[in-house]
Amino acid sequence: MEPSLASYLALSGILFTIGAVGVIFKRNALGMFMCIELMLNAVNLTFVAFSRYYADVTGQLFVFMVMSVAAAEAAVGLGIIIAFFRNRQSIDVDDASILKN
């Protein structure tokens, strides 16, 4: 017996929920970054599952695109985090409030 499409979607939904809640609960920029990666991965899982159940290669191709976007995001995001740390000696997003005053 193979697991149904619905089980894959449920797994993906649960992972996405955990990621979304994590973005709100985490206070440091790296933690938020990792939660966003988790959400992207949850979406990838639905792509691959649909690709399998409809025998269509499009889903897997877009997973590839998502991965490239994640790589670009990692390069720029980590660069920003390091630049921010140099200024503030912290990566807590609550400290990123310089524009407020």
Binding site: A6, G13, V21
Partner: peptide, 22 residues
């Protein structure tokens, strides 16, 4: 989001999909 997930789960359960051969 969790409620939405379970809604999707039931919505897809009603139209069960078998993996296409090949």
């Amino acid at each position: 989001l969790l409620v939405q997930t379970f809604f999707i789960f039931y919505a897809v359960m009603r139209a069960p999909q078998q993996a296409v051969n090949g």
